[in-house]
């Protein structure tokens, strides 16, 4: 019966992809090895990662529509590859920079999906503000060179397997989505509603936001204010405590 197994059937592709993902993440995660073994592991892990990626791309091709969407393929590869690099890079500063590249890829994906405002907002808010804040803290707190805790991971094997299994389950259920018989996928609406190419895309998004979701916007504004006040209050209190400690001691 072995001959009956088609090596390119979706199930086999998915199983290969999940296994390769787990193995590659395990090899790539920092495990506190000596330099030479680490380099070898990194190469093997990168190759396995490429295999996993191509398995997932092949799954997508089988789902159809990936060939003509070359732009989508490119930006999503940028997003996914740099996301993997963020997770496995030893130096946290490089991790932050890889994360910025991953954000650029995600913004590209959002643009392809017809959310131009969100694509730009991702770049502005995440890469412009949040990431720079992360880098500030890193520069304040990071000792020179690689810290020992950057060279080891908590349970790299279990973490990699957990991530790969979750990914496999998610892709399995995504692959089973079919149009029509499922309420979630029934009735794809006409494309005009959220098309990014429309001239008044942002205006209509704003109209929706400040019309139906006005209360939620107010709540989000209050949340931002509270976060700002709260973070300043926490910093001020710890500074005060430190000064008093110094006086007492």
């Amino acid at each position: 019966m072995l001959a009956a197994i088609d090596p390119f059937s979706p199930g086999v592709l998915l199983a290969t992809g999940v296994t390769a993902t787990a193995a590659s993440l395990w090899l790539l995660l920092p495990r506190g090895q000596s330099g030479r073994r680490e380099r070898t592991a990194r190469w093997v892990g990168a190759l396995l990662g490429l295999a996993a990626l191509s398995a997932f791309v092949a799954t997508g091709r089988r789902l159809g529509g990936l060939g003509e969407e070359a732009v989508f393929l490119i930006v999503s590869l940028v997003a996914v590859v740099s996301a993997a690099a963020t997770v496995v890079t030893r130096s946290p500063v490089y991790a932050a920079i890889w994360f910025a590249l991953s954000l650029a890829g995600v913004a590209g994906v959002l643009l392809v999906l017809g959310a131009q405002f969100l694509g730009v907002a991702t770049i502005v808010v995440y890469a412009g503000a949040i990431l720079v804040m992360f880098l500030f803290v890193l520069m304040l707190a990071q000792p020179s060179g690689l810290a020992p805790y950057d060279r080891v991971s908590n349970e790299p094997l279990l973490a990699a397997v957990a991530g790969a299994v979750l990914l496999g389950l998610l892709s399995l259920s995504i692959g089973r989505l079919s149009a029509g018989d499922d309420p979630a996928t029934a009735d794809p609406a006409p494309a005009v509603a959220v098309d990014a190419l429309q001239a008044d895309h942002v205006a209509r998004l704003g109209g929706e936001l400040f019309g139906r979701h006005l209360v939620a916007i107010e709540a989000a504004g209050v949340l931002l204010l509270i976060a700002l006040v709260g973070s300043i209050a926490i910093v001020a209190r710890t500074e005060e405590a430190r000064v008093q400690e110094r006086r007492a001691g």
Binding site: T59, V80, A83, V109, L170, I174
Partner: peptide
């Protein structure tokens, strides 16, 4: 489905 798979990969990573 392709976009959902990209989202799933990012989430798992």
């Amino acid at each position: 489905q392709n976009a959902l798979i990209v989202g799933a990969i990012l989430f798992s990573l």
